[in-house]
Nucleic acid binder design. Structure first.
Length: 573
DNA sequence: GCCGTTTTCGGCCCGACTGTTTTCAGTCG
């Protein structure tokens, strides 16, 4: 995939043009192109082959030829020439919060500051004060910016963002001054990782709300504090932004602060074409110098006035949903209630914490009608993989439990290991006994793309395997996805009636949203499972549902929305 | 640099907060 490489080069060009105070719209054109290429669900080299580059929004004649040069030669002459005109460290300065192109340029021109080290030295020697527009407060802000930059704020897991936001929301909603409260931003869009947490409040007394917010015990630093907008850093260095608006603007503000950025830009353009202006306070009809308030109380009324069907937050990425909303053709997305059972769960028999009986009871309580107990296979010793003898005993236990249950069934399953050659960890005579088989790679992640693809394909072709678990192998914060030839894998899965898993474990969320969408487009169905090792982890299902919704899945695209009889029928090979 | 139900030029999403200034530029989202 060259997509990321191309996007990075365009962003770098935008940065350099910014320092050089170039035409802001030209800069924006590079940024927009970078964003759109980054969120592309196809390999950009395929687009070149098929002469479809110009179909990407924001790519015209010039950028198309630049993309070709990057993909063909691995570099771009234009960037190389551009880089000669600015000192290399200057781009680093732009990474510091509170330092933008103007400040960076001034620091370089006046004080010969070329990188962060120079900047720190200049601050120490008190050289900054006296520059145009810089006095004590600005120096303090730059110092804090350097700290934040050095610490590096990474994206956090969706589950962490959710619990952090809940802590704030729980406290704020107790205030009588808070009439409504909602998370916004990428958290509301349920992205798998989140950078900052956005919270929106309706109140007639913003000062009071802001005051309480900035003094909450979990707040370490107040970054910004105003009438309608405040930002803080928590003790865990998580940035939380709070916005307060009037009730009649709640929908417009929620709309705006939920994003995504690309989505907002496109919707605003649609508004303009209809003679409206859309901002965080509402949708306005422009009448010469005056403007008339048209909508804003709810998101629904704004969509309606723009002749769009309602777009759920999870879809707001400008990847085709707006065009479908204009035609009223959006898919109806799956919800948690559609799930009838969990197909990937570990018990005490291998490395889980609870007995099959306890897991079954918990699943019944969740309203499920089945649960598959898929313990590890014999070769995976570190995870207590089961020998053939143990399997027999486990089967007896499951049969006994099932006899005592009505309208619920425990399915006899395994998470069988795929070895480095693509072979399974049990012989056929054992595999054929299972009702559900989930196959997964647990070792040999460093093999080549071809080798890893071959292993998964071999497993998917196996007549006993129903589901390929956590296909990309990513473990957030531990290891990235390995590279795979997804198109080939999709094809083999489709031809062999093999399902791909959306693993709901917070560190995995694998398939991710993009691959999920591609898999659906390739004609596949998915299984949303939790990979739970404890009772509590059964509730991770809602994270998997978020991935599925962001991946455009409907109920019919998901295996475990079926009842148990239907399910066992359709998975037969 | 892109783009067209204002179509080949002249627009391009929109606003808050801060620090410095004395009306606004810079930065951020």
């Amino acid at each position: 995939m060259d997509n990321l490489a191309v996007a990075k080069i365009f962003l770098k060009i935008a940065k350099i043009l910014e320092i050089k105070s170039e035409n802001p719209f030209r800069i924006r054109a590079y940024e927009r192109a970078a964003r759109n290429i980054e969120s592309l669900s196809e390999d950009i080299s395929d687009l070149i082959k098929e002469d479809r580059l110009r179909q990407i929004p924001g790519i015209g004649e010039d950028l198309a030829s630049k993309i070709k040069e990057i993909v063909n030669t691995g570099k771009l002459k234009f960037l190389q020439e551009l880089e000669k005109t600015v000192p290399p460290g200057l781009l680093e300065l732009l990474e510091i919060p509170s330092i933008g192109p103007k400040t960076a340029t001034q620091l370089y021109k006046e004080l010969k500051i070329k990188n962060i080290k120079d900047l720190e030295k200049a601050i120490e020697e008190n050289k900054l004060i006296g520059l145009f527009g810089i006095r004590e407060k600005t120096v303090e802000n730059i110092k804090r910016g350097i700290e934040i930059y050095k610490r590096g704020r990474e994206r956090m897991l969706l589950s962490i963002a959710q619990s952090t936001a809940d802590e704030f929301i729980d406290k704020l909603k107790k205030l009588p001054e808070v009439k409504k409260i909602s998370p916004a931003g990428s958290l509301r869009r349920q992205k798998d990782t989140v950078r900052d947490i956005d919270i929106l409040v309706v109140s007639e007394k913003p000062e009071k709300v802001m005051d309480v917010f900035t003094r909450l015990p979990q707040v370490k630093t107040v970054l910004v504090s105003g009438q309608t907008k405040s930002s803080v850093l928590t003790r865990d260095d998580i940035q939380v932004d709070l916005r307060v608006v009037e009730e009649k603007s709640f929908g417009a503000a929620l709309f705006y602060f939920t994003g995504s950025k690309n989505f907002n830009i496109k919707i605003r353009q649609i508004a303009i074409k209809k003679g409206y202006k859309l901002n965080e306070y509402g949708l306005f009809l422009e009448k010469g110098k005056k403007e008339e308030f048209i909508a804003g109380r709810s998101e629904e009324e704004i969509f309606k006035k723009l002749n769009l069907s309602y777009i759920v937050p999870e879809l707001r990425e400008d990847t085709g949903e707006i065009e479908l909303a204009l035609k009223n053709k959006l898919p109806e997305l799956i919800t948690l209630k559609d799930i009838k059972g969990d197909l990937h769960v570990h018990s005490k028999w291998s490395d889980g914490a609870h007995s099959i009986d306890e897991l079954a009871k918990a699943a019944i309580k969740m309203g499920y009608s089945y649960i598959a107990i898929t313990d590890h296979s014999q070769g995976l010793k570190v995870a207590g993989g089961l020998s053939p003898q143990e399997l027999r005993k486990k089967r007896q236990e499951i049969d006994k439990i099932n006899k005592g249950l009505k309208n619920f069934r425990v399915l006899y399953g395994t998470e069988v290991d795929i070895d480095s050659e693509g072979n399974l960890d049990y012989p056929d005579e054992i595999l054929k006994e299972f009702e559900i088989i989930v196959a997964a790679i647990h070792t040999g992640f460093k093999q080549s793309k071809e080798q890893l693809t071959m292993r998964l394909i071999k497993a998917a072709q196996n007549r006993f395997v129903h589901i390929i678990a956590h296909p990309s192998g990513r473990l957030w914060g531990v290891r990235p996805s390995y590279e795979l030839n997804w198109d080939e894998l999709f094809k083999v899965c489709r031809d062999n009636n093999t399902y791909l898993e959306i693993n709901s474990f917070p560190h995995r969320l694998d398939l991710n949203d993009q691959n999920c969408k591609l898999a659906k487009e390739a004609g596949l169905k998915m299984a949303i499972t939790t990979d739970a090792h404890t009772l509590d982890q059964l509730y991770y299902m809602k994270l998997g549902i978020s991935v599925a919704r962001r991946g455009w899945l409907s109920k019919k695209d998901v295996l475990n929305t079926l009842g148990v009889d239907e399910l066992l029928k359709v998975i037969k090979k």
